[in-house]
Every structure is written in structure tokens, then in C-alpha cells.
């Protein structure tokens, strides 16, 4: 068990293993997203209140779910890297941030597009959108701290502390935004979280969430490969990998 774990944490081994893993993640992700999109956009009935407009949840909900999940993944990886000094964990955390920020931006944009037919305006200071906006700032802060250091080791550890401080704050921010929004507007905003959802609408959503998660893991594996290769650029195995690539290209 432990040898397996240590092997996984060794960059060259991870580099090879992730390469074989990527197609096993991305192809099922594509399949699930296609099935989910078909189920959500074609099979599921129109909502009697929101009409066809609600169908954007099939992108919005998985994106906003992942925007939070990726932050937690990033913080866990950063914590593992900080405590056990595993370089690979830092590479994972570094790779998570831009992906998570993209999901957050996607959740914001789809939320705004959804807001136009629902509220008649692109932006409402509604708790979920506000939380997503703050989350986006947290990602930006993390990424700019990471890029501010010249020393990679220092950058890894400093940004890990920030990620951990952020993950403690995420629930605090979430609940204070809920409280803050509750003071300003009535419960009409809960239109979005349909309390009970018909099965015909639900299953494509679950399929989409699963598809998006696999998509994230596939993208993450690809990014970590690149990150590891860049970090280990001067090591023997990385040079071998790079030379191998250039030889193939020359042929």
C-alpha cells in the first residue's frame, strides 16, 4: 500500500501513469456530457414556470458545484504538500487553480445568462452569484500570490497557506453572504433551487455533474503532467521525455 503511494508521488512515475489515465477520464466525460446534454436539452420537459430557460442549469449547476469542489481539492492537495512535503501535491494544487477559476467564471456567466429571463436583469446581488464572485477573487488572489515568487519551493508553501486560510473562510463567506442577502430580499430568490425536481429533469443533471467531474479530473491529470515536466525540467527523466518527443517530431 505504502510503496504504491510513494510510487504515485514520484514525478516520473506519475507522469507515465497519468498519460494512460487521461483517455480513461476524458472519453467517459465526453460520453456522459453528451448523454446529459441530450437528456437535459431534448428529453427533459420544459419547466411550467421557467419555460425552456431553466435548461441552463445543466451547465450552471455542474460548474458551480465544481468551482467549490476544485477549491477544496486544491486546499487538500496544498495541505498534503505542506505537511508531508510532497512535491507532486503542490503540483496538483498549482494545476487546480486556473481550472477552478474557469469553472467559477463559467458558473458566473451562466448564472447571469439565466438571470436575464428569470429576474429581467443580468446581475442580482443574489447570495449564490455573490458567493461565486468572491470565490473567483479567492482564486485570483491565490494565483497572483503563486506567480509573485521567484523561488518555486517558497511559492508552493506560501500559496498552500493561503489556500488553507481560504478554505476555512469559504463556509464563513458563504453563510455571511446568505445572511446578508436574507436581510435585503425576501425568499423569492429561492426560485432557483427548485425544492423538488422531477426525475426526468434530475437524471440528466446528475449525469452532467458526473461528466463534468470526470472532465475536471482528466484536465487536471493533463495539467499536472505539464506542471511536473516543467518543474523537473533539469532532471534526467524529464530531459529523456523531452528528447523522445523531439525525436518523434523530427522523424
Amino acid at each position: 500500500m505504502w510503496t504504491w503511494f510513494f510510487q504515485l508521488a514520484s514525478p516520473p512515475h506519475f507522469y507515465r501513469m497519468a498519460a494512460s489515465l487521461v483517455p480513461w477520464l476524458l472519453w467517459p466525460a465526453l460520453l456522459l456530457i453528451l448523454v446529459g446534454a441530450w437528456g437535459g436539452l431534448v428529453l427533459a420537459p420544459a419547466d411550467y414556470q421557467q419555460g425552456e430557460g431553466y435548461r441552463i442549469i445543466y451547465v450552471h449547476v455542474p460548474s458551480s458545484y465544481l468551482s467549490m469542489m476544485v477549491y477544496v481539492t486544491m486546499a487538500v492537495a496544498a495541505g498534503i504538500g505542506l505537511i508531508w512535503r510532497i512535491k507532486l501535491a503542490h503540483a496538483v494544487a498549482a494545476s487546480c487553480a486556473p481550472v477552478g477559476a474557469t469553472f467559477t467564471a463559467a458558473a458566473l456567466i451562466t448564472g447571469m445568462l439565466w438571470g436575464k429571463p428569470m429576474w429581467g436583469t443580468y446581475w442580482q446581488w443574489e447570495p449564490r452569484l455573490t458567493s461565486e464572485l468572491i470565490l473567483l477573487f479567492l482564486y485570483f488572489g491565490y494565483m497572483s500570490l503563486r506567480s509573485a515568487f521567484n523561488d518555486l519551493n517558497q511559492s508552493d508553501r506560501a500559496s498552500a497557506v493561503l489556500a488553507l486560510a481560504g478554505v476555512v473562510n469559504v463556509p464563513i463567506i458563504h453563510f455571511s453572504v446568505l445572511w446578508w442577502a436574507g436581510l435585503h430580499q425576501g425568499p423569492s430568490i429561492s426560485k432557483i433551487d427548485a425544492p423538488s425536481i422531477a426525475f426526468a429533469m434530475l437524471w440528466p443533471l446528475l449525469v452532467m455533474i458526473l461528466g463534468f467531474t470526470l472532465f475536471f479530473l482528466g484536465i487536471l491529470a493533463m495539467r499536472v503532467r505539464g506542471e511536473v515536466l516543467e518543474r523537473e525540467f533539469h532532471s534526467r527523466w524529464a530531459q529523456d521525455v523531452l528528447r523522445g518527443v523531439s525525436r518523434v517530431e523530427a522523424a
Partner: peptide, 12 residues
């Protein structure tokens, strides 16, 4: 940029 978002709950 880093600390600002963390301070928002206090502000609110």
C-alpha cells in the same frame, strides 16, 4: 487582492 476577499464577512 489576497486578503480583501477574506475580509468581506467582517465588512458585511
Amino acid at each position: 487582492l489576497m486578503v480583501g476577499p477574506l475580509m468581506l464577512p467582517v465588512l458585511m
